[in-house]
Amino acid sequence: MAANRKRKSALPGFRFTMGFTVLYLSLIVLIPLAGLVVKTAGLTLPQFWDTVTSQRVLASYRVSLLTAFFAALVNVAFGLIVAWVLVRYRFPGKKIVDGLVDIPFALPTAVAGIALTSIYAPNGWIGKLLDPLGIKVAYTPLGITVALIFIGVPFVVRTVQPVLQELENEMEESAALLGAYRWRTFRKVLLPELVPPLITGFALAFARGIGEYGSVVFISGNMPLKTEITPLLIITKLEQYEYSQATAIALVLLLISFALLLVINTLQRWTNRRLRSA
């Protein structure tokens, strides 16, 4: 632990902690991820293209993207209501509800997966009610969406909550004094402030949904072309020893995730700036 006094900071330990950080980061994250790219580079461009645009793979992107999209949309609507109620109203059991919001984050995905499957299977609690109506949830894209709604709950609530807490009453107050109705005040004064965190929450839930595996694999039924998500297809290819195909599909999934990460980071910086200037 050499004190590096040439730096601006008088504190010791920069070289030691920085060295360890970079080493550990490289060994655990960067080198393995680079391996993925190197392995894919072993394919010729036409091979790569044929793999990642084959009918079954395209169908899996479609299932993954659409279910994650609709699940994130549902979470935007209900997440806003949950966050609103938690920040602004008083009711018994509020602290417990607030804690329950984090359950999807803390509960292992396999546990969620088997529980949701048994609820929505044709003989399950909710499946039994929906079955006579001709609505099938388990083993359909709807089931995948249900699992992703569960997984996405904390994202929207936890991004909207702090913004809602920081919102100043003044603008609302003047709108009310000017005789604006509540709904109009909400739409014109509050909603514009809530749009950035809502989009961030949406993007976080969407990104998580695209890569999600554990909670989905039980309820999806895993039918190629119909209910096969991209992460599962990667595993299927691996099990068939199609390493380069699995890697190529994984690279596409990785690029989608990174693009979303970029969007999310930009959005969060934007929201934080607004929060600070408020």
């Binding site: 890569g211 992460p231 990667i234 595993i235 999934l253 990785l254």
Partner: peptide
């Protein structure tokens, strides 16, 4: 940001 499946892969 990485899918768990890729983290294993």
């Amino acid at each position: 940001a990485v899918s768990p499946v890729i983290s294993g892969l």
